[in-house]
Design a binder for these strands. Structure first.
Lengths: 229, 229, 229, 229
DNA sequence: GATGAATGAGGGTTCATTCAT
DNA sequence: TATGAATGAACCCTCATTCAT
């Protein structure tokens, strides 16, 4: 019978710090405070990314996150409801932005080989050479234990990317640039990206992998001009 | 001593459990005992598989493993040095057997399209429709925190599979059955398998994925007869 | 999304230590263990009584309870589900026994003045000069925040005592030994007892109170032979 | 500094808040400010009353008090040194006023039966149907942990009420209106009041208690004309 | 004065590991 | 060997208190 939570608190957002827009007086300092607040939030997210990436959700201590963010342990709770919220927010924050970019790219209706080059480049620069790589690994590692998060990821990220890809592939197939079967499994396009992410985290030190080359090879193999059956 | 913070990868084998046959006396019952002992060990591993698969390393309680195995908590420590050992042994035990099968298959020197069919079938039946799928997911999820385990996996499993694949692809390329580039990145062959494993764990419930069809499509795309450049 | 509790655990009792009766082998040591277990449980309850009495529910640290009981903090959780359970069990354990005694006393159908003497004596010896006094104070102090406990106390203790008293008073009133109104409010009988308990905890050091004398006086005033109205 | 463990009863008044009129300048607005200040103080006390009554001392969060009072958390510290001070002040503020009323009533030297009626009425209207009831319950619940407070309560409230009662009862006994013994234990008079307070907080929902009737009954029983022994 | 973000000590609870039986 | 009660180090989260704005 612990004290009942009165804190309604939105799903995953900051709990109280509502930062009401301070209309009128003290606009200046309120703005500063808001800024500082956003900076802190980002610092926490950045620290959390490091820790979660290195240790996984359960093994990460908020103490370490706080220390890394240069704040006190309790401060985390001013910005996130609990450890899980922090985790989920982190993943959302990191993964949401890519979607738009890919959708835009898909809508441009470029010739497939050009599009493919762009996608590979996008993946390498925006994901693979970024912390986003680790976030995706986290998603893979912990997703089963956070069904809500998996759902979010599917709905907001994956399904949209897949839909965009599928549309492109359909058009390309209609133009004969691509074998028809590919549009049924857009996942195939992304498969080497997944391999790259997993490999880099676990086996890079034993055998480096030239991700860009691998992806390029894959694309060439898929798009190679075929003899008529 | 309570749970150590830093994951000091320790020698992974059974600690003391002197299973070596009792010298002289009671040779007979010693055999029986050995049998029972092996059965217990297996029961623990089986239970651990379920629990680790469902919850991940940290979130798994040895209490639950013991309960599921039908033994007392302390008994686990007669067969495994600690939680980490149990985990690592489990992964080793589950993943080692596939290697031989794949190597054998590779050595058979079949025509690539036939080999491809066999590989797809092998993967689906021996991995995907098996708990091994979960073990691989575990490996992906926890690998970074168990460098020794990742190393083992690379050395004993991955590198050997890759070597086998590469040999096959080289020969096939020489015969013109396969584009030369593929041998540089045998990972490409496995990529959809990885996609399948990840997808099944996280997104199956939103959008089912016909793994066999996807892998078949992938293989067909890769092996399709090409026009001369 | 913390790990879901599989521990069903009965309302307030010991969580797992089910102490299955070990039928057959090792009866001896099992008995010993059971004994030791009961002793430990009692030690915890005794320690909890001290601490809760001194500090109240919230301010009591289980750490202190454990230290006082001579055990490790975690051990408490082998016997009680949580702090609240410990608290509630403590109160139940302490208060339940009195009821029977009072009921028996009431059923004996003694002349009121004799009964009154006995009740006063019972209260003083079994409650006031006992730790039970503190338990009742605890009940008063914390009851509002533990509605379940208040309900238990009302149902299992108070209402039964009141019923017993009322029956006695009815009979006595019928015999003219007691004014009729008293049976309507048996609480009046107990009122000085309550005063005694509260006084002893808070003001004894400023002004001692002769509880027995006060209660005797009260009884005499209530039972004094009256002039006909 | 975080919450101190040991309850060091500290001087209870406002800490620094230099409410003394600003010397010279702005005399006018200083008055207004003083007013506002007092209003704020009262708002805090009112909010604290609700919260402390509902949850007890430890379980009450100053955050909730502040929210209820419509102020910021930090503001509380402008009016009270700390949580404990607030608590003690609250109790003092609430309980002090009754004393005078009772003393006055006692000094009036009414016939006992009339006085008794007045007292019952006073208790019901000024305590029982008031938040003061809860304050007394708080005093009972937390008194042991706040010895200073208990002492204050005894010295400033209880002992004075008791003295007044005793004086009245002595005079009444001399006139033969009351048995002599009663003057020895004026607590007896108050006992049903205590019962009423405790009962209302814990058991009212199971079995309502007509407090006024109970107290009236009690008085009648005590004051009933007696046969000469 | 008033605010509320920030602090950080603390405490309830968990669970890997040990060890007496 | 097997058991499971006992241990105690962690770790998440709370909240009284402070202090820059």
């Amino acid at each position: 019978m612990s004290r009942p939570r009165t804190t309604t608190a939105t799903p995953n957002e900051r709990p109280r710090s509502a930062h009401r827009s301070a209309s009128g007086v003290q606009q200046r300092s309120a703005g500063k405070r808001k800024q500082r607040s956003a900076a802190r939030r980002d610092a926490i997210l950045a620290a959390a990314l490091e820790e979660f990436s290195d240790r996984g959700f359960e093994a990460t201590r908020l103490d370490d996150v706080a220390r890394r963010a240069g704040i006190a342990k309790g401060t985390i709770y001013l910005y996130f409801r609990d450890k899980e919220s922090l985790f989920q927010e982190l993943i959302r924050t990191m993964l949401t932005p890519i979607v738009g970019t890919i959708e835009t790219l898909g809508a441009a209706d470029l010739p497939v080989n050009l599009l493919a080059d762009r996608l590979v480049d996008l993946f390498v620069r925006e994901v693979f050479e970024t912390r986003r790589k680790d976030v995706i690994r986290l998603m893979i590692a912990e997703g089963r234990r956070f069904p809500k998060l998996a759902e979010f990821y599917y709905r907001e990220v994956l399904s949209r990317i897949i839909a965009a890809m599928r549309a492109v592939l359909r058009r390309a197939a209609a133009r004969g640039e691509v074998p028809a079967g590919l549009a049924d499994f857009p996942q195939i396009i992304a498969a080497p990206g997944l391999v790259a992410i997993v490999w880099s985290g676990l086996f890079e030190r034993f055998e480096p992998l030239d991700v860009r080359a691998m992806m390029k090879t894959h694309v060439e193999l898929l798009l190679a001009p075929r003899r008529a059956a």
